[in-house]
Amino acid sequence: MRCQPSGEYQVYNWLKNKHCCLLCDEPTDTALAICTSCEAELPWLGGHCQVCALPLPVTGIRCGACQTKPPRFQRVEAPWCYAFPVDSLITRFKHQAKWPLGRLLGELLSQHLRHAFDEGLPRPDVLLPVPLANRRQRERGFNQAQLLAQWLSEQLALPVQCHWLKRVLDTPAQQQLNAATRKRNLRNAFALAPESRVAGLHVALVDDVLTTGTTAEALARQLIQAGAARVDVYCLARTPKPGD
């Protein structure tokens, strides 16, 4: 596993006083590597389900699925819909090792969470990155969820435990699977490490994208069974329903 990007990958100096926007390459007018215009044009999540963050015409209500069968997690927090250019930025981050893009998205997610905490969202006791299958992590060289969790930990002063959750089955990739197949795919795929201590804790799962919520549901179920008091999900983007 690479702990730092190698020399062939794009590296961004976050200690510079003046930044250039990573999207348009123009000088930024903020402390982050994104200009105000590009930030405003990101696909910000508007109306959405108050539980799973599924995009809806209005906010403050539950989607049909969460009303019919409430998930084990309490709430999903995501700043964006999974749409251009966020989808492209996430893909380049996790499949092309464009670390500065992931760091930028993580910084913006931390700003979103600070606002949510100020609005009354309970702060978690610990951040838990969604684990990656061993083979996929060896191929990729890193777990994007773990990087996001570590960056959020720095920005929000929250502890992170990167090894409490384990992926014990190397299942096929989830991207092209429907909800039912995803659920079967993840059956018994995860386990809690012997050293994990989640009883009585409010934990937040960290991942890059929430699609059907099957992974979050499987992990939340195990955490609740192990005694966790509450499970939330923090991610960069939420996918809409097919066809929306």
Rank of each mutant, 00 (worst) to 15 (best):
Q174A: 04
D125V: 11
Q96D: 11
G60T: 14
R230L: 03
E154F: 11
P70K: 00
A173G: 08
K16M: 15
T36G: 15
W44H: 12
A149E: 05
G106V: 10
K94D: 07
V126G: 06
L45M: 14
K183F: 03
F190Y: 08
N185D: 01
Q161N: 09
L223M: 01
V233C: 00
F73K: 00
V198W: 01
A157K: 12
I224R: 01
R92G: 08
V11L: 14
D170L: 04
P55C: 13
V209N: 02
R140S: 03
A65G: 08
A31M: 15
D29S: 12
Q150N: 09
L169Q: 10
V209S: 02
L169R: 12
V233E: 00
V203A: 03
L158E: 10
K241F: 14
Q174H: 02
G102D: 12
V86N: 05
L54M: 11
L101T: 09
V198R: 00
P79N: 15
R184C: 08
L156P: 01
L210V: 09
T36E: 13
L105H: 06
A149D: 06
F142T: 04
A228T: 06
A204P: 06
G64N: 11
K183H: 03
C24F: 03
K94R: 07
L101A: 10
C3A: 11
L165P: 00
L108N: 08
P5T: 10
L165S: 01
W44F: 10
E217L: 01
V130R: 00
A220F: 02
K241P: 13
C52S: 03
P71M: 02
H163V: 13
A97V: 13
F73D: 03
C21H: 02
C24I: 06
W151M: 05
W80D: 10
D29Q: 14
R167W: 09
E217M: 00
P242N: 07
L89W: 07
P5G: 09
T171V: 03
C38R: 04
A78V: 05
N13Q: 13
V203L: 02
S153R: 10
K69S: 02
E77R: 04
T28Q: 06
V51P: 07
V203R: 03
N143H: 08
P172G: 07
S37Q: 11
L219C: 01
R136Y: 04
A157P: 12
P242K: 04
S110K: 10
K16T: 14
C24L: 04
T214H: 01
E8D: 15
Q111V: 11
W44G: 11
W80S: 10
K98R: 15
F93L: 07
S110C: 11
A31W: 15
A229Q: 06
L147Y: 09
F142L: 06
Y234T: 05
A179H: 07
L201C: 04
L210Q: 02
A204R: 05
P43S: 09
A157G: 10
Q146M: 07
G60H: 12
F73T: 03
L45A: 12
L186T: 01
G60R: 07
H115D: 15
F190L: 03
T211E: 02
T181Y: 06
Q150G: 11
L201S: 06
T68W: 11
Q4L: 14
N185H: 01
R75Q: 12
S88L: 12
S88A: 14
G60S: 10
T36H: 14
